Simulated assay, not measured.
Amino acid sequence: MQTAISADGTTIAFERVGDGPPIVIVGGAFSVAADGAAIAAALADAGFQAVTVDRRARGASGDMRGSLPEDEVSDLAAVIAAVGGEAIVLGHSSGAVLALYAASRGVPITALFLSEPPFRFGVAEPDPLLADRLQQLVDAGKNEDAVLTFQLEGVELPAEMVESIRQSDLFERLVPLAQSTVYDARLTAQVSTPTRGMLSVPQPVTILRGEQTFPLLVTATDRLAEQMPAAELVIVPESVMHRPDPATTARVVRQRV
């Protein structure tokens, strides 16, 4: 993996595959660069230089305790500078929230593809102190509790699904990412309702969602599309339950760039 240095000195790791215009893939909660490998491969086959990123406090990237959403904006800006100075950005889930926020803050993004960003628009918001409570759990060495709390309250997974994950091999991979839940919770709380600047970014915007996904995400993407009249909403039948289909997603991007 390669690295870029963010504005606060944090090292951000990323990986590139393919040749062509750079497209940075920004994953959501609990994701690391490797989780974007299938989409990156599909985009590389479609003629792009696909860049997957370990967001701060994940994988090979560093961390700075007390990080704010603005720091993650700087992380994305540093990666884009390292891969050519400007880039298309494909964000999924909280990564889509970050991508749109970064565009509104002047990061040199040429086009945005926003996959199921979990905006709340003021409805059924999580506890505003969730990020602080998660940080307290992490600071107390209770990473497992932080992961479970975020799944239950931040992502709002059903309790039986969370228990199933806790008993699976997957849980061991999630626990080291506990600190990142703080940053995801803080980001999605700060811009749960997109700012005016986010809704009026100058870049072409494509909003993606699966035909079958969680009701909250259907509401979020449809409302975002309503509030961004210049954006295009694309329903992707092959993407199921908050999991983007690599081949179809790459085809949607290729058709619009």
Rank of each mutant, 00 (worst) to 15 (best):
M1R: 03
Q2W: 13
A4L: 05
A4F: 05
A7N: 04
D8K: 00
T11A: 06
T11G: 00
I12G: 11
I12W: 03
I12Y: 03
R16D: 08
R16F: 08
I25P: 04
V26P: 09
S31G: 08
V32I: 09
A34N: 12
D35P: 09
G36E: 01
A37T: 12
A38P: 13
A38L: 11
A40M: 06
L43W: 05
A44H: 04
F48M: 01
Q49Y: 07
Q49R: 09
A50Q: 03
V51D: 09
V51F: 02
V53Y: 04
D54K: 06
D54M: 10
R56K: 15
A57N: 12
A60D: 11
G66S: 01
V73I: 06
D75C: 02
L76N: 02
V79D: 07
V83L: 10
G84R: 10
G84D: 00
E86K: 15
A87K: 11
I88F: 13
L90M: 02
L90F: 15
S93Q: 02
G95S: 09
L100M: 08
Y101C: 04
A103R: 10
R105W: 08
P108H: 09
P108W: 10
P108M: 04
T110P: 06
A111D: 09
F113Y: 15
F113M: 12
F113K: 10
L114V: 12
S115W: 14
S115H: 14
E116H: 01
P117I: 05
F119V: 01
F121I: 11
A124C: 11
E125V: 15
P126A: 07
P126S: 09
P126W: 09
D127H: 12
L129V: 09
A131T: 05
D132C: 06
Q135S: 15
L137K: 10
K142R: 13
K142G: 03
D145G: 04
L152E: 00
G154Y: 04
V155C: 00
L157H: 03
P158E: 06
A159K: 08
V162S: 01
E163P: 05
S164H: 07
S164L: 08
Q167I: 00
S168D: 00
S168K: 00
D169R: 15
E172S: 10
R173W: 03
L174S: 01
L177T: 08
A178C: 03
T181I: 06
V182E: 00
V182S: 04
D184S: 01
D184A: 07
R186M: 12
L187D: 07
Q190A: 14
S192A: 15
R196P: 05
G197H: 03
G197R: 06
S200T: 15
P202I: 13
T206H: 00
L208R: 01
E211D: 02
E211R: 13
Q212H: 13
Q212P: 07
L216Q: 14
L216M: 15
L216E: 14
L217C: 02
A220M: 04
T221Q: 03
R223V: 15
R223G: 01
R223Y: 13
M228Q: 07
P229N: 05
A230Q: 14
A230M: 11
A230K: 09
A230G: 07
E232M: 08
L233K: 02
I235L: 11
V240L: 10
H242A: 07
R243N: 13
D245S: 14
D245K: 12
T248V: 13
T249V: 11
A250V: 07
R251E: 15
R251G: 12
V252H: 11
R254E: 12
Q255T: 12
